[in-house]
Amino acid sequence: MGRSFNIEINTKWCKNCGICLAFCPQKVFTWDEKQRIVISYPEKCTGCLLCEYRCPDLAIEVRKVEEESHE
C-alpha cells in the first residue's frame, strides 16, 4: 500500500521546535538522536495539514501523492 501524502521539511528553514511533532494527530514525526525532527511514519499521514499550517518557520509542505499513471 502506497503513501497518500508526501511530507517535506525544508531543513534550511526548520528550527526543530517540535510543534509539528507534539500536535500531529497521527504521530508521524519523531526526534532523532540530535533532537532533529524526522518524518518517521509518513504512511500514517491523513493530510490534515495542521503541521504545515502551524509551522512557525513555514518549513513543512504536505502534498497529496499524485497517481502515477504513465508508468
Binding site: 528550527k15 526543530n16 521546535c17 510543534i19 512557525p56 518557520d57 513555514l58 518549513a59
Partner: peptide
C-alpha cells in the same frame, strides 16, 4: 507572498509569531 530568499526567519525556535506569518501568506 514571502521573500523566500530571506528565509529562514530570524525568530527563535518555536516563536509562533511565525505561525501568524504562515497563516497570513496563505
Amino acid at each position: 507572498y514571502i521573500k523566500q530568499q530571506m528565509f529562514p526567519l530570524f525568530t527563535c525556535s518555536g516563536c509562533t509569531h511565525g505561525t501568524v506569518t504562515n497563516a497570513f501568506a496563505r
